[in-house]
């Protein structure tokens, strides 16, 4: 299989804080990788480096062989191929759901209005809320907003989807509707990197799990191995904390 994302010796400083201390990770096409770890362990920072929302201090990110830190790389072209879903949804509040899913198609993919709306509606249907096409984000529940946010990314036909704690801001009864959409996506073969502590989802969707602590990758394993037979003391400690919750 092709290597979709290659992270080579990634370091990231914020001032004097070294948030990421040398991460190496290769993610293949169609793979679903789930990243777990305690707060402040650098999970978000690694994810945000993958689409260059953060610039690595050193080391490199390669998307389908394209080196992001290379000055000649058109970062906007790469980002169009890498969808990102945020904890806080970050829908555009002045636009309707349908406008949210069409605006980047039109500006970045240069699709005409009719085509963008056709694709946008198809994505809203896929996430199960076509009837909310003309609603504004403030008129939607958290779960619906997050599904629109996923549709917004998918409408760009990305090759990779990044999720940063997509269900952490949701009321419990809305978590499932979002995870179901993500699970479908995983089954369809999307390359996904997901920061989440939803263990049921991890079991069902993950090809590999990455445990991070202190800015480093401590352990990489299949969900079964990681849950049932963690190799490192730090992993055991962390799992014992979250699994009792």
């Amino acid at each position: 299989m092709n290597d979709m994302i290659v992270i080579k010796d990634l370091h990231k400083y914020f001032g004097h804080i070294e948030a990421v201390k040398g991460v190496d990770l290769t993610i293949r096409q169609g793979e679903v990788v789930i990243v777990i770890g305690p707060s402040g362990s650098g999970k978000s920072t690694v994810l945000r480096c993958i689409n260059h929302l953060e610039t690595p201090t050193s080391g490199g990110i390669y998307i389908e062989g394209v080196h992001l830190e290379d000055k000649k790389t058109d970062i906007n072209a790469v980002r169009a191929e890498v969808g990102m879903v945020f904890q806080q949804f970050n829908l555009f509040p002045h636009l309707t759901a349908l406008e949210n899913v069409t605006i980047a198609q039109r500006l970045v993919r240069k699709r005409d209005k009719a085509e963008a709306e056709r694709i946008g509606m198809a994505q809203l249907e896929r996430v199960g809320i076509p009837e909310k096409a003309n609603a504004y984000p403030r008129q939607l529940s958290g779960g619906q907003q997050q599904r629109v946010a996923i549709a917004r990314s998918l409408a760009m036909n990305p090759k990779i989807m990044l999720f940063d704690e997509p269900t952490s801001a949701l009321d419990p009864e809305m978590i499932k509707e979002v995870l179901d959409v993500m699970l479908d996506l995983a089954k369809e073969g999307m390359t996904m990197v997901v920061v989440t502590h939803e263990m049921g989802f991890a079991r069902a969707a993950a090809d590999r799990m990455v445990f991070m602590d202190g800015g480093q990758v401590v352990e990489i394993a299949s969900p079964e191995e990681l849950y049932n037979n963690p190799q490192h003391q730090r992993t055991k400690l962390f799992l014992s904390k979250i699994l009792t919750h």
């Binding site: 689409n51 555009f92 980047a104 990314s153």
Partner: peptide
């Protein structure tokens, strides 16, 4: 305007100007 708005727009491939 919250920083997340710019980040969401940029992560969809929009230029800063767009």
């Amino acid at each position: 305007i919250s920083k997340g708005q710019m980040e969401a727009a940029r992560s969809l491939g929009m230029t800063t100007r767009q």
